[in-house]
Simulated scan of single mutants.
Amino acid sequence: MRSHSKMGVRDRAEVTEAVFNVLRHLRLYRNLAESGSGAAARRLAILGLDATLPDDFLKPGLEAQEHAWLEHIRRIDRQAMPRAIRESLPDWLDEKLAALPDSDSLVAALNQPAPLDIRVNPLKVTREEVMAGFLSGPAARFEPQATPYSPWGIRFKGRPSVSRWPQFEKGEIEVQDEGSQILVSLMAPKRGEMIIDFCAGAGGKTLLLGALMRSTGRLYAFDISQARLARAKPRFARSGLSNIVPVVIEPSTDQRVKRLRGKAQRVLVDAPCSGLGTLRRNPDLKWRQHPEALNEFQQLQQRILREASACVAPGGRLVYATCSLLPEENERQVEAFLQANADFELLDAPAIARDRCPGLDMQGPYLQLRPDLHGTDGFFAAVMQRRKS
């Protein structure tokens, strides 16, 4: 697009949607494209555009043999194909997801585009105030609706340019999936506490934590990446929060982390992971991840969880979360941690979440969100408490 700077907004949107469609269905489209001729990339583009544009939109731009090939492709019964091809999954990932409950429903949902969720800044404004402004202004055409679980979320149809809206520039709203908002509710932060967001990244969860603390106490935003925290600083500035302390830390050896041992009332570990719960937004991940990387993530998760847990004060809370769907990154990590750390006990995460998100009907002890069941990205979270004795 940089090399075609004269493309209009609508053209850019249509090309983007088609490219993401191809990424979602890459294995299927490659399989279908084997029957055609000519440049393989052109056949993939035809399939992506055909899936995202109105019927016969492409007809004037196709050669006669391409049109005949596309008509042939449309008649193929895709349900007769193996699921890994039909739903465009690498074999190893299809095998992993097949072990999960209702895996067909889950896989189909992961291949659908995600809606756009935003969150209000409760330090500055209420959701009702923001919704009233949206419904009476240009944003109304995107049909804003309150998210079903989070008390701070709003969901749009389409892809509005939220970053250009005055509410965004004033720090009243932020883009954040409803699942991430629900995860923050597990922390249940209180005014005046010392809280650590151990893997803060671009600061989305940090911002909501700070607002719920009413900008009191001290909120450390730790990350090993200076670039990620640098991207978060403009968001911190817009939010109006004054209690956030961003800190670039060294893995395993940071003295500032060691000085906080046993002092934080609440610690959030949004751990680095495979990210497979976010395939709706990042369909390229299923082609970039591989089984060997899972082993590396598991070792990293164990190390971070061990370091972060040392900062939890007696009686304090530790929340471990990922945007993965795989047990080896989720339940098994928590079970191994609890077995090695008898001073921590597991709490009922869904029961805690319902204090802020009363519509969330789920059995504990873990919080497990799925796109097919909850309309969010795939998330996992466990809440643990350090015993006082």
Score class of each variant (00 low, 15 high):
L279N: 01
A84D: 08
L338G: 11
E169Y: 06
V22L: 07
E71Q: 15
C323Q: 04
W165K: 11
P54W: 08
P251C: 01
A202Y: 00
S161T: 07
R159M: 13
T216V: 05
R24L: 04
I352H: 10
L285P: 09
P90W: 01
G262N: 01
R24K: 07
P350G: 12
A40T: 07
Q298H: 02
S3D: 15
G275K: 05
G203P: 01
C273M: 07
Q226E: 15
R30Q: 09
E307N: 11
R317L: 14
K170E: 14
L135V: 10
Q299F: 11
Q299A: 14
L116I: 09
N330T: 10
T126E: 12
G359E: 12
V248S: 01
F168A: 08
E17K: 13
P365Y: 06
C199W: 10
L23S: 15
L305M: 10
K124G: 01
I85F: 12
R78I: 15
S324H: 03
I118F: 07
D56N: 10
R119I: 09
T126P: 06
L209G: 06
E87T: 02
W152F: 14
T376I: 08
A353T: 06
T278R: 11
I46N: 02
Q339D: 13
S309K: 05
R42S: 09
G217Q: 04
P371T: 10
D50M: 03
I173R: 00
Q265D: 08
P371F: 04
G375L: 04
Q301M: 04
R27W: 10
G204M: 00
K157V: 11
S324Y: 07
M384C: 14
V334S: 03
P144D: 10
A340M: 06
R30A: 02
R280T: 07
G275T: 08
V269S: 01
I118Y: 03
H4N: 14
R261Q: 15
A382T: 08
D361R: 15
V312H: 10
D117H: 13
V319H: 06
Q226A: 15
L260V: 01
T322S: 00
Q385W: 05
A64Q: 06
F380H: 04
L93N: 08
D254T: 09
A293Q: 14
S324T: 11
L300N: 08
D197W: 12
A351W: 08
P115M: 05
G158K: 05
L212H: 03
T253L: 04
K6P: 00
Q299Y: 10
R228F: 09
I118S: 03
R354T: 07
G262Q: 08
Q167S: 15
I85V: 14
A336L: 11
Q301V: 01
R10I: 10
Q301A: 00
P138W: 09
P291C: 09
W152N: 01
M7R: 07
L346T: 06
Q65H: 15
M362W: 14
R12N: 05
A40K: 12
V383W: 01
V19M: 05
S136L: 13
V319W: 04
